[in-house]
Design a protein around this nucleic acid. Sequence first.
DNA 1: TTCATTAGTTAGCATATATAATCATCTCGA
DNA 2: TCGAGATGATTATATATGCTAACTAATGAA
Lengths: 153, 153
Amino acid sequence: MTMRAATITTNTDQSVAVANQLRPVLLHLNRHLRREAQTQGISAGQISLLASIESHRGTGVKELADREGMAAPSVCTAVDRLQAAGYVTRERESTGDRRRVGLATTPQGSALLRRVRSRRTAWLAERLQALTDEERASIAAAVDALSALVTQR
Amino acid sequence: MTMRAATITTNTDQSVAVANQLRPVLLHLNRHLRREAQTQGISAGQISLLASIESHRGTGVKELADREGMAAPSVCTAVDRLQAAGYVTRERESTGDRRRVGLATTPQGSALLRRVRSRRTAWLAERLQALTDEERASIAAAVDALSALVTQR
DNA sequence: TTCATTAGTTAGCATATATAATCATCTCGA
DNA sequence: TCGAGATGATTATATATGCTAACTAATGAA
């Protein structure tokens, strides 16, 4: 196999090139996804917390903070607001470690989460619809790899 | 061509399925991209404004607000901070419409922007590197379609 | 049993972003 | 051409977000 220096493309080079194209796209798509939350009267950050509480029913404030990469006091006040809005419940542990509180979504919280997810999915699906079959197929073929991107380690 | 109802997959169904897989991945990737800005001592929002000013040298506050989907006063105070930090300049229009101000990045602002972009690209590229060749190829093949997703209309 | 650690919270601060109000300038129609 | 309404920027004010530091209560280990 012969390669001229000028046309060598290493995995690293390709990764950087793809990363450079991917970066603005990710940022742009996300701006819209964040906005879809706001049309439902909640911020993207609150939805992210709500989702994490839903998928880890009974989680504590510290645990949640670590999972979300936030400081515990920030989560504490955010949960205050979610609770005041009727989206989550806080229940002090009675058996076991009585310092902990258990967080859980209310039916209203779960419903809001479903609504936001559905709006976001709809927004994305609408845009996917407007692509050519080939374009859509290429994205469908890449979805698993993209998922691997975030679950690796 | 025969199709059993249970296995029919329309473009719409496929789009929704892909959208559903894509949604959490986009949100997750973005959380990290936002964080890379913060390691450089600036918020993701400020970087977004800075980028928009850089690519539209001389833009006004209202124009910028519309482009970013923000309210003009929000942009105004954000620009206050960017200016105080030495990243942008505000220059009142002397010829033409004297209500307008022209915004532009300083060399320090451009340097910061390059730094954040480079960190974000590096973070993404590092993760792409850890994929298999096939996975990486599938993402590379989808990048143009993903770009089309945000530039359509 | 006492003391360091841990979970949750409160206090105080900076940032972010919104709406309403204000000021200056511009534009257009009578 | 001039005055009324529109427009760009800003200020004032309020709320949400997120941080560190300090505090409280409960745990657990020497």
